[in-house]
Design a binder for these strands. Structure first.
Length: 258
DNA sequence: TAAGTTGTTCGGGG
DNA sequence: CCCCCGAACAACTT
């Protein structure tokens, strides 16, 4: 379920719950006592990256669906919910969710300029954070929630394919222009992701993630667990360029000659 | 059927 | 103090 765009869709589905009072709460999520929610009224629901933020008077609750998480509105699954909320007429179930009580005001607890689904996402800040670790591989950086909150493995693979960048490219050797393109493409792709997911056509629109053949060259994609994160990368070695030290050395040599 | 998966946190070791 | 890495978590699909 859970990259940023899916969470925004969840948030939108839950808007009818704003203003509703919780009359009963339960769940096995560790480190969280559901009882604190009883008799509390939801004052707002937002997202931050892959987190759903349910805001109450004086505190909020952060729900993260991890890799296998799911939710049901006015239905119940086979297993016990990690968070169950009962309202006057409706009920909400989260399965395999991590739940955390947040006492700091949301504006303070979350940096909204990092959220790729937020209008206030700050591309310049993202670029500065990328530059802080020039040795890092782009495939690792693209799923770093401190830089791109809400970006996940699908976003990573699709953005790298769209911008024709090899996942093992090092930040330091990616030209600034290309780095900027990568950052803005994260936002653009997430918007597409959101629209397609809402229309339930996401899978058929993906060009690289879990695909066998490169749609541009009609040759097989490479599939490998790359970077420190060792997450699946699907990439075409013909059209996705590897920015590495060697190429940088060439650029420097050319610069000296000029 | 067993492997694969849109993810994060924690703790130990270096 | 930082970084790295593996384990743990847990359920659905193919």
């Amino acid at each position: 379920m859970p990259e940023g765009p899916s969470l925004v869709i969840l948030k939108e589905k839950l808007q009818p719950f704003v203003g509703q009072k919780i009359i009963m709460a339960d769940g096995y999520a560790k480190g969280f006592d559901p009882a604190v929610l009883i008799d509390q009224t939801i004052s707002d629901i937002r997202t931050w990256g892959k987190n759903l933020i349910i805001i109450f008077r004086g505190f909020s609750v952060r729900v993260h669906l991890g890799l296998f998480g799911s939710y049901k509105i006015n239905h119940r699954g086979k297993n016990r919910a990690s968070l169950f909320l009962q309202f006057e007429e409706d009920e909400l179930n989260f399965y395999i969710a991590h739940v955390k009580l947040i006492t700091d005001p949301p504006q303070q607890a979350f940096d909204w300029t990092t959220d790729v689904m937020n209008k206030g996402f700050d591309a310049k800040k993202a670029r500065e954070k990328l530059m802080l670790k020039p040795e890092r591989l782009i495939c690792d950086a693209l799923i770093d929630q401190r830089i791109f909150a809400g970006s996940g493995n699908i976003v990573k693979n699709e953005v790298l394919f769209r911008t024709r960048v090899h996942p093992e490219s090092k930040i330091a050797f990616i030209p600034t222009r290309k780095l900027n393109e990568l950052i803005s493409e994260v936002v653009v792709f997430c918007k597409d992701f959101y629209e397609w997911r809402k229309a339930e056509t996401l899978r058929q629109h993906l060009e690289a993630h879990e695909k066998q053949i490169c749609p541009r060259n009609k040759i097989p994609f490479n599939k490998a667990d790359l970077g420190k994160t060792k997450r699946h990368c699907y990439y075409c070695s013909k059209c996705q360029k590897l920015y590495d030290e060697k190429k940088r050395a060439n650029i420097e040599m050319a610069t000296k000659l000029l």
